[in-house]
């Protein structure tokens, strides 16, 4: 039950982040929306492992009738969290390079400047 609610919640979070990436004109807001998408997907994996129960999967003593969480999605998504962290850092570095040169974060202005430079 908990798992299913978390999964639907995280998929709606993903949609919100995707819409934010399309609609916002600010570069930092775009990167933050990507962060929302990545966090939602990490949450979804937690939801998948919570489908069989929410007790932490640490075996101690009698575990015959307890509902343990599935450890595999939790274990693999740690790598996903690290990757999303690295991607956010890298995109902010690129944003800093662009800001230092053009002093703006508006996507349309930046692209207009580049198209003028190419001519």
């Amino acid at each position: 039950m908990t798992g299913t609610i978390v999964i639907y919640f995280s998929i709606s979070g993903m949609l919100v982040g995707t819409i934010g990436m399309i609609l916002s004109k600010d570069l930092i807001k775009k990167i933050l929306s990507l962060g929302i998408v990545e966090t939602s997907i990490n949450l979804m994996y937690t939801g998948i492992s919570a489908r069989s129960g929410i007790i932490p999967p640490i075996v101690s003593g009698d575990f015959s009738n307890a509902f343990y969480a599935d450890p595999i999605p939790q274990a693999v998504i740690i790598t996903g969290i690290v990757i999303s962290f690295a991607l956010l850092c890298l995109s902010l570095v690129f944003a800093i390079i662009i800001y230092n040169r053009y002093h703006t974060m508006n996507v349309e202005t930046i692209e207009m400047i580049f198209e003028r430079e190419e001519r």
């Binding site: 999605p73 991607l87 890298l90 944003a95 390079i97 580049f114």
Partner: peptide, 27 residues
């Protein structure tokens, strides 16, 4: 160069959004 950083950032935003859909799929 800022031109390269912009091309790279555009690639990053699109590709990591796409790979999140892939992650949803394998979930």
């Amino acid at each position: 160069k800022p031109r390269q950083a912009w091309a790279s950032l555009k690639y990053l935003l699109l590709s990591s959004l796409g790979l999140n859909f892939y992650l949803l799929g394998i979930g």
